[in-house]
Design a protein around this nucleic acid. Structure first.
Lengths: 168, 168
DNA sequence: TTGTATCCCATAAAAACCCATGCTATCCCC
DNA sequence: GGGGATAGCATGGGTTTTTATGGGATACAA
C-alpha cells in the first residue's frame, strides 16, 4: 500500500530515487524468491494524469487491475478506448536501477512541470508524482474538504475484531 | 503487457525497429530457456484493423486467445467466419532480425498509410501501429474523453485479504 | 537484370550499470 | 544510556551496454 509523501531530487540525467517505502510495495517478492509479478518486472509504471499536470503511477499489479476493469467493458465502447489510449498507451515502464532510482522520460517530466524537485504522494493502491509547488496549493484544500465531508468516512466491512484497538 | 507509445522509422527497405519493450513482451523466455511460445516463433503478428486505417498486432499468445474466443462461437456463425477471415487470414508473421527489426509487407504499410514514421501504441494485451499523423488527433481526444468518463474508472475494493496488503 | 528478402557490420545516442560518498537511523555492546 | 559500528537511503558521476538506424553483401525468384 502506497503511503506517505516525500520529495526527492530529479538529477541532471533525469533520474530520481523512488522512496524506499514505495519500492518495497511494488517489488514484494513471493516466498519463492521470484518476483511476485509474473513477468519479473521490478519497477513502477507511470503515465500523465488526464486530470491535471501531474503523473499517476503504480506497480504492474495496478495496471493489471485496470486491464481487468477495461476488459469487462465493450471492446468498442468509446470510453474504454479512451482509457486504453490515455493510460496504457501513454504509460512508461520505469525499472529500478541498483540504487532504487528510475529515469523519468523527459516528456513526462515536462508534462508534470518537474524540474529539480519531485513529490511522491502515496494514495493506497496508486501514487501520484507532482511538482512540489503545484502540490502545495492542493494539499491545504484537501484537509479542509476532508473535514467538510467527514461524515462520509464510514468504514464498512470487518466484523468486530477480537479486541485490540480499532479506529481509523 | 504492451505499454507505452513510441515512434520509429520505416526505412527504405521496409524495415522497422519494434520497440525493445514490445520485443521483451513477446519473446519472454520460460525458465527452461526455451521460448514460451510452443512453436519457437520469435516475432510479432500483425493484421489490418477492421476499424480504421491502422494495424493491430500482438504476440502469438494473442492469436491463440482469439482462436479460443472464436472456437467458442458457432462454427457457421457469420460473425465468426468474418472474424476468422479478417484476422487470421489477413495477418502476417513478422519475425525479428538480429537487431530487433521486422520488415513490414508493403500492403500493410499502405493500408495504414505509413511512410517514414510509424507509431506503436501499447494497449495491454495487444498493440496498434499507426501513422503518427493519424494517431495524433486521436490521442488528444482520448485524454479529454478519459477525463470526462473518469468516474467509470473505479477499481473495485479487494475483499479483505487474510492480512497483507489490501486495497484502499 | 531487377527486385526482394536475409544476413552481417558500423555508429551515434540513449539507457542501463557500476562505484563512491555523505547522511541518517538503527543496532549492539559495554 | 553513551557511543561506536552498521546498514540503508538518497545522490553524484563515470563507464559499459543496448537501441535504433543506415548501409553493404549475398542468395533467390520473377
Amino acid at each position: 500500500m502506497f503511503l506517505s509523501r516525500s520529495t526527492n531530487t530529479l538529477d541532471a540525467k533525469g533520474r530520481i530515487s523512488v522512496p524506499a517505502d514505495f519500492r518495497s510495495v511494488v517489488s514484494a517478492k513471493s516466498q519463492s524468491g521470484v518476483p511476485a509479478d509474473a513477468d519479473g518486472f521490478d519497477g513502477i509504471i507511470v503515465w500523465p494524469s488526464f486530470d491535471g499536470p501531474y503523473l499517476e503511477g503504480g506497480g504492474i499489479a495496478l495496471l493489471r487491475d485496470y486491464q481487468a476493469l477495461l476488459e469487462n467493458m465493450d471492446p468498442y465502447d468509446d470510453a474504454r478506448i479512451a482509457f486504453e489510449r490515455a493510460i496504457f498507451a501513454e504509460s512508461r515502464r520505469l525499472s529500478f536501477d541498483a540504487n532504487g532510482r528510475v529515469s523519468l522520460p523527459k516528456e513526462l517530466a515536462e508534462y508534470a512541470q518537474l524540474n529539480g524537485q519531485v513529490t511522491f504522494i502515496g494514495l493506497g493502491r496508486r501514487f501520484e508524482i507532482w511538482s512540489p509547488k503545484n502540490y502545495e496549493a492542493l494539499a491545504v484544500n484537501a484537509r479542509e474538504m476532508a473535514r467538510e465531508n467527514r461524515h462520509r468516512l464510514r468504514l464498512v466491512g470487518r466484523p468486530n475484531p477480537p479486541s485490540q484497538g480499532g479506529g481509523l
